[in-house]
């Protein structure tokens, strides 16, 4: 049984600003590259094992850096990263992990999107999990790091963090496809479900890579992969007029 608070992190109703992002698909839809549910599935088959893998591995690593393996995340985080006396805890040095994610996100437009969403999620995490080890993340961290920290605070594992990262990428794309193309939401629920099953191995791979990197304290061990077309489309999207989604 997963930690109960993890359901909250899986819920798209958690107010983290995700509803205003399309996972890159708006730019593809506008160019006629994605028109039907099968196209959405194909888009995900390109994106999840690449950019999705990187994000999921980074989230898993962030979670592993704080992994408490117990029932009281706050106590165990405090044990691993001693209390400062003012009630705050110190945390890992996030800078190398932040830099590693930037290095694996080729275009500036998507680095900015990641930081926008990280800032938003940080606000939510502070409200929902006040004990979360957010110290040192700064004001605009990459979203994957905040997701990993939130997962640890909610009592989850690195595999949970990787799974959540993939779930939200898939969910963002599917829900945007419904709104942009008027597709049948039931058909897209099917696409979402099948994508989570099909890309289960990506979650496992990301969790392993993230845990290994965290264990070795080597951010450079995070996986490296992307798909060029969505990166280019993301740049065009950021420059476009009349876009409905922020990305």
């Amino acid at each position: 049984m997963p930690a109960p608070e993890l359901w909250l992190l899986a819920d798209s109703r958690l107010p983290t600003g995700g509803h205003a992002h399309s996972g890159g698909i708006e730019s593809a839809v506008r160019r006629g590259l994605v028109r039907a549910p099968d196209d959405v599935a194909a888009w995900l088959s390109g994106r999840v094992p690449t950019a999705g893998l990187v994000t999921a591995a980074a989230a898993a690593a962030a979670c592993a850096l704080l992994d408490s393996r117990g029932d009281d995340p706050s106590a165990l985080v405090a044990r691993e990263f001693p209390s400062r006396g003012d009630g705050t805890t110190t945390g890992p040095d996030w800078e190398p992990w932040d830099a590693a994610i930037s290095a694996r996100t080729p275009v500036a437009a998507l680095r900015e999107v990641s930081r926008q969403q990280g800032r938003a999620m940080l606000r939510t995490v502070r409200a929902a999990w006040p004990h979360a080890a957010v110290t040192g993340l700064g004001t605009r961290p990459h979203q994957a790091l905040v997701l990993g920290v939130a997962t640890a605070a909610a009592g989850g594992t690195p595999t949970d963090a990787a799974g959540l990262a993939v779930h939200h990428l898939v969910g963002q794309v599917c829900s945007a496809a419904v709104r942009l193309l008027g597709l049948d939401p039931l058909a897209l629920a099917g696409v979402h479900a099948r994508a989570l099953t099909a890309h289960g191995p990506v979650v496992g791979k990301a969790a392993d890579a993230g845990t290994t990197a965290a264990g070795a304290a080597e951010a450079d061990l995070l996986p490296t992969a992307t798909t060029p077309l969505p990166e280019v489309l993301a740049v065009l999207h950021a420059r476009s007029e009349g876009a409905l989604f922020a990305s």
Binding site: R13, P15, G17, H19, A20, R179, A246
Partner: peptide, 21 residues
């Protein structure tokens, strides 16, 4: 100006993130 992903009422009520930013 903020973008609201086709959901103007979500952006002012259920998930105000973009506007708060």
């Amino acid at each position: 100006a903020v973008r609201t992903g086709c959901c103007p009422h979500t952006a002012i009520r259920d998930d105000v993130t973009a506007n708060l930013d």
